[in-house]
């Protein structure tokens, strides 16, 4: 029993980050599922984190309300952002939304009320690992119910051929915006949870690199299935823990080893498993079948 408690205490942070990164990966997946590469999610997470933090610390709001509004505010911000940026697509959409994220970060750096670049510390720790995982489960449930519905088919149609989808009567702009809003809410929720788990928020936690991480989680896990991004996040969050154990035996510092292995994993997935880790079982079955027939 003691051993279990000790292990939990050691890996509590890892377990929480599996859930937080899962939520963030899903927040990128929402727009990817209708073929849109929108990368403003570090900005949405920052808005959620700061909003929830300020509500808890300055307004004395109950934690549940802080979290809720921390998800709602970025969702509201996503509407005026989405209306103009979805007029462009592909890499231009990615650049415009990255720009949004940077604007949020730089705005926070220059906002003295929230201590600028230093950020806010001593936030009460109110988020538990369990709560993080419940939120992830909720997000997965919502996405699983969208799949296969009239909505879900509209999203797939937009991803496959947007003009053709429009001639089917699908108001594509509305669906794309809805998914951006949903993604913003998920990112904001993750931001609020993270702030109340790690006791602190700072603008540099929401840099461009953070949204690249989210995208890598989604790609490595597989953006073809709603649960793929969560699996990618879990895999890539656990990997450094494993490497930390291994690195002394290899005589390499954990930090550089992590970067090296992360890069190799990403490369290997893109080259050999373009549908992500979730396609591994199918890939394996195919291999077995072809070996049997040979």
């Amino acid at each position: 029993m003691e051993w279990l408690q000790e292990t939990y205490a050691t890996y509590q942070s890892t377990l929480a980050y599996i859930g937080l990164n899962g939520l963030l990966a899903l927040s990128v997946y929402t727009t990817l599922s209708c073929g849109q590469l929108a990368l403003g999610n570090a900005g949405f997470a920052a808005i959620g984190a700061y909003a929830a933090t300020l509500l808890t610390m300055k307004a004395g709001a109950p934690f549940g309300l802080s979290l809720l509004l921390g998800a709602l505010l970025p969702a509201l911000v996503a509407v005026p952002l989405g209306l103009p940026v979805f007029r462009i697509r592909g890499v231009f959409l990615a650049i415009a939304t990255i720009g949004f994220g940077e604007v949020v970060r730089i705005g926070l750096v220059n906002w003295e009320y929230v201590n600028g670049a230093q950020g806010i510390v001593a936030i009460p720790q109110k988020a538990s690992v369990g709560l993080v995982w419940i939120c992830l489960a909720g997000a997965l449930f919502v996405l699983s119910r969208i799949r296969g519905s009239k909505w879900g088919f509209a999203l797939e149609a937009i991803r496959e051929d947007e003009p053709a989808a429009r001639t089917m009567g699908i108001h594509t702009a509305r669906y794309k915006l809805a998914m951006l809003v949903l993604g913003a809410a998920l990112a904001g929720l993750a931001g609020g949870l993270e702030a109340h788990f790690t006791f602190m928020v700072a603008p540099n936690g929401f840099s461009f690199g953070r949204v690249v991480d989210m995208l890598v989680f989604a790609v490595v896990g597989g953006a073809g299935a709603f649960y793929g991004p969560a699996i990618g996040a879990a895999f890539l969050t656990l990997l450094p823990e494993v490497l930390r154990e291994v690195s002394p035996h290899l005589g390499i510092e954990p930090g550089p080893l992590r970067m090296l292995v992360n890069g190799l994993v990403l490369l290997a997935v893109i080259l050999f498993l373009p549908q992500g880790l979730v396609s591994l079982p199918a890939w394996w079955r195919e291999r077995l079948a072809s070996r049997r027939s040979a």
Binding site: V142, R145, I146, S149, K150, W151, F153, A154, E156, A157, A165, M168, G169, I170
Partner: peptide
């Protein structure tokens, strides 16, 4: 099924 988009009743709330 995508072609039926305009004819189908929204079912998302019921699905949730």
């Amino acid at each position: 099924l995508v072609g039926q988009h305009r004819r189908r009743r929204p079912s998302l709330a019921a699905r949730m």
